[in-house]
Simulated assay, not measured.
Amino acid sequence: MSVVVALDSLKGSLPAAAASAALADGWREVDPAAEIVLRPMADGGEGTLDAFAAAVPGAQRRPVRVRGPRGTLVDAAWLLLPDGTGVVELASTSGIELLGEDRLPWDADTTGFGQAIAAALDAGVERLVLGIGSSASTDGGSGMLRALGARMVDADGRDVPAGARGLAAVSAIDFSHLRTPPAGGVTVLSDVTNPLTGPAGAAAVFGPQKGLTAADVEVVDGVLERYAACIARRVPAADPLLPGAGAAGGTGFALAAWGADLVPGAQRIADLVDLAGAVAAASLVVTGEGAFDGQSAAGKVPAFVQGLAATHGVPVAVVAGRIAADADTAGFAHTISLTDLAGGAAASMADPARWLAEAGRRLATRSA
């Protein structure tokens, strides 16, 4: 039996590498002869930096202190690769997990992400790879742009506040001091394909998990539409309907306006760790994430891994912290919810490694 374990992180609970290892430990208790190949995954969100660090020899972490999504200082890092590429992760600088149980739907922003990008530019990186999943805000990437030198003012010419609250007052945007992207370009790893605005946009789809009420969603969607129009006056090619423009609360749109290319994050990480080569030789692939739900089909790790395995005719199991009622489980050979195994979400999150090991034991038993 050859098993590839390619889990994403369990957001706010366990990194991808630790999660994959825990499941493998459980499998080996039942089937010690199995060949288990670990390929921890990411899709641009939490764990992207770790995936690059593990896969690229000589990668160096560069510490940086930035303004987090609640306005307080956060210690983070970006990654310098031997070829001069800088890798920056939004999750560790402006991510939702940095808020804990709090939500700041109108005031959280992406300033810290922009500051980390600026630090990489200051270090002279030749190109940038930016992971933009797990955002805490719906600020359209405005905090990031301001950290890179843009200025956003209201009708009286005053700088607007941070977050979606500030966007509501934006009358004009000045890009004259916006920093230039590195010569080698900017590649953005996105975990979703949503546009900036509309019923499938940043506010409507992702706003509620960041604390926006139903009434807020309608208002913020309009705010993002006006913000996009302001940017389009400076960057006519900026397209709010671009797939991925709605990623990270609209940060995808801001980065595209800066000149970045948006690509599927899971594909790029899979290439980095040669997931295809491992899957081609496997008897079973196990993938998963923290919450497997209706959004997982739009660029998240489990859907990507399932599609890759299908091309090789290899069955796939999904293990997730939670499997929502709207999740598309068609095509998966096995599905396991850690919440169900543990008897509740609190118990599952209190000791995720224990329940991942149990999931590994159960999968091994089913596959015997």
Rank of each mutant, 00 (worst) to 15 (best):
V5P: 08
A6D: 08
K11D: 08
L14M: 12
L14F: 15
P15Q: 04
A16T: 01
A17R: 08
A19C: 04
A22T: 09
V30T: 06
D31Y: 04
L38K: 01
L49E: 05
D50H: 05
A51W: 07
A55M: 03
V56G: 04
Q60N: 09
V66T: 11
R67H: 10
R67A: 15
T72D: 13
L73Q: 11
L73I: 06
V74I: 11
A77E: 01
L81M: 09
G84E: 06
L90G: 01
A91P: 01
I96P: 01
L98R: 00
L104Y: 12
G112I: 00
A116R: 01
A116Q: 10
A118I: 00
D122M: 08
A123L: 09
V125H: 02
E126D: 10
L130T: 05
S135C: 15
V153Q: 03
V153G: 02
D154Y: 06
G157Y: 13
A164S: 08
F175R: 01
A183Q: 12
G185C: 09
V186C: 09
T187R: 11
V192E: 05
V192W: 05
T193S: 08
T197S: 14
T197M: 06
A203I: 07
G211W: 13
G222F: 14
L224E: 14
Y227A: 10
A232V: 15
R233W: 12
P243T: 10
G246T: 12
G246N: 13
A248N: 07
G250N: 07
A260I: 12
A270D: 07
A270Q: 05
A270W: 05
L272W: 13
L284S: 07
E289C: 08
A291I: 09
A309E: 14
A309T: 07
P315E: 10
V318Y: 10
A324W: 14
T329N: 08
T335Q: 14
T339Y: 01
A342P: 06
G344E: 11
G360D: 12
R362C: 04
R362Y: 12
A368G: 11
